[in-house]
Design a protein around this nucleic acid. Structure first.
Length: 510
RNA sequence: GAUUCCGUAGCUCAGCCGGUAGAGCAAUACACUUUUAAUGUAUGGGUCCUGGGUUCGAAUCCCAGCGGGAUCACCA
């Protein structure tokens, strides 16, 4: 193993610590009593008539964290420790932590052998220094874990200027632990993401939903049009697929008598990666019996409004250069109207050849395998999709590209489906779900024909799913939310990798 | 997958019309004994992504590969 000079020095220090009889990785718990932020926000003192200060709280505290900045001196030192919530200054006086003649703990351990990144625990009382900084006067100091690699040292001055930030994107993603440790604001992105998910979960639970788990390993990868990852079960000697969606399983549960189920589903798709696609990603799907897609639009816009209000206290959220308003209700427009609005072309009565001609006219590439539905989707994607910045429900898609969706109650050739577009991207996809088993079987068979025409993303027939439907499936509406995309919106990030702790990377090839 | 840019010390970067490497922070030592990105002086630290090629000589030019970013295409 190749070690840098600094790593060698730290290993030597580690040995010296051991030689002093100090365990660099002690086992006993450290009784943390407060967090940095509790102290920084809660410290109180009063100034007496004679001008002296009287500390009112935090007479005994115990904190643990990483040593991040040290300004050692001969008899007293200042340093910062960083815990999960922030940084706080500590004041270490030699004669306090070494009350006897033996000053080793201060002179050697603290001044010589501790490094940036080491975990320490301190006990003492809180005071305000003469420069006005709330600090911990340390009475007792414990090494909790020695760090053998040097962290990047990122410094911020009082004007908020950052010096020597750890910015290499590849290193930040590969060593997210370092990114989280040294770069301010990274944790906040993930905390916001977690809060967003919590708001959604609470909202669903408040409306009577049941959170469920369904298989990740599936015999038939159903519920979406996508290329799956394939794996193999040794004992059964069968191929298994990592799920591309959980839709068909949640619907089986509705058949079984639940009326509102949801799952945060990690899905896997063996397709390209870019700043909005990771091979594994999270989709929230939920299904509600006896509802239709109009109900789902109402429910969805209220949910998003609630997320915005909870995270930001307002419905207006800054996303890139845009201010996005999550104030319900959202605009609703059918896909055919949207295309007409953006291009002036009315394609509602066109057949496959007519659509092909429109594509040619608009310089959109087509494949012979594309059916009518796919062509309409291509036209929408090329001409209209990106222009929907404010939340908009695009409704009433062609039946060909929606094999799991109920036929529209009044518009022939269309289905009761909507996609929610925000900032030019699809965030959610929902239907009045198809529950007619005869129709469902026919739709699957059309998918088989598409597959034979060369569409490698057409759906497989799931006979068990059809069987379930034949037992009777109540009418319902369902939706899938791209949780990562939603997290990008609500944290103002333009790359999916910034909202995933560990985005997919190639091997480092050691 | 295509195009394009990038890969130099622990971190951030300079050096790139070829002459075998520099800065700041970090580290080490000494001095100073202190506050708040940054005290001073000195020192150490590099398979310049990897492998080939051109050349007397390659971090620098050429080719291939590996890894990453951006844009485009497909997909959520």
């Amino acid at each position: 193993m190749h070690l840098s000079e600094q790593e060698i020095i730290r290993r030597e220090k580690l040995q010296q610590i051991i030689d002093l009889g100090i365990d660099p990785y002690p086992a006993p718990l450290f009784p943390v009593s407060h967090t940095s932020i509790e102290i920084l926000e809660g410290y109180q003192e009063e100034i007496l008539e004679d001008g002296t200060k009287n500390r009112l709280n935090f007479q005994e505290v115990a904190l643990a964290g990483r040593l991040m900045v040290a300004r050692p001196g001969g008899k007293a030192s200042f340093a910062n420790i960083q815990d999960a919530h922030g940084r706080i200054q500590i004041y270490v006086r030699r004669d306090d932590i070494c009350p006897d003649d033996d000053k080793t703990l201060y002179d050697i351990l603290f001044c010589k052998l501790l490094d940036i990144g080491d975990y320490i625990g301190v006990k003492g009382y809180v005071f305000k220094t003469k420069t006005g900084e709330v600090s911990i006067h340390v009475k007792e100091l414990t090494l909790l874990s020695k760090a053998l690699k040097p962290l990047p040292v990122v410094k911020t001055d009082h004007d908020g200027n950052v010096y020597d930030a750890f910015t290499d994107i590849e290193l930040r993603y590969r060593q997210r632990y370092v990114d989280l440790t040294v770069n301010r604001g990274i944790k906040d992105i993930f905390i916001k993401r977690a809060k967003m998910i919590q708001v959604i979960r609470d909202y669903l639970l408040d409306h009577g939903a049941l959170e469920v788990d369904t298989p990740v390993l599936q015999n038939i990868p159903g519920g979406a049009a996508a290329r799956p990852f394939i794996t193999h079960h040794n004992a059964l000697d069968i191929p298994l697929y990592l799920r591309i969606a959980n839709e068909l399983y949640l619907k089986r549960l509705i058949v079984g008598g639940f009326d509102f189920v949801f799952e945060f589903s990690r899905n896997f798709r063996n397709e390209g990666m870019d700043r909005t696609h990771n091979p594994e990603f999270t989709v929230l799907e939920f299904y509600v019996a006896y509802k239709d897609y109009f109900w789902m639009m109402d429910f969805t816009e209220k949910l998003l409004e609630k997320i915005a209000l909870t995270l930001y206290g307002t419905t207006d959220v800054q996303v890139g250069e845009q201010i996005i308003s999550f104030k319900a209700p959202f605009r609703r427009i059918s896909i055919l109207e949207a295309i007409q609005e953006k291009t002036g072309i009315d394609i509602s009565e066109m057949d496959e050849q007519g659509l092909m001609d429109v594509c040619k006219q608009l310089h959109i590439e087509t494949q012979p395998s594309m059916g009518k539905g796919k062509l309409i989707d291509e036209i929408f994607g090329a001409t209209a999709e990106k222009s929907f910045i404010q939340p908009t429900f695009i409704t009433d898609y062609p039946v060909e590209m929606s094999p799991l969706t109920k036929k529209h109650r009044s518009k022939a050739g269309l289905v009761e489906r909507f996609e929610l577009m925000i900032n030019g991207k699809e965030v959610a996809n929902a239907y009045s779900e198809l529950n007619d088993p005869i129709d469902q079987r026919a739709r699957f068979e059309e998918q088989v024909q598409l597959m034979e025409r060369g569409d490698d993303e057409a759906m497989f027939i799931d006979h068990d799913f059809l069987r379930a439907m034949e037992y009777g499936m109540p009418p319902m509406s369902g939706i899938g939310f791209g949780i990562d995309r939603l997290a990008m919106l609500f944290t103002n990030q333009s790359s999916i990798q910034e909202v995933l702790f560990f985005p997919q990377m190639r091997g480092e090839g050691q």
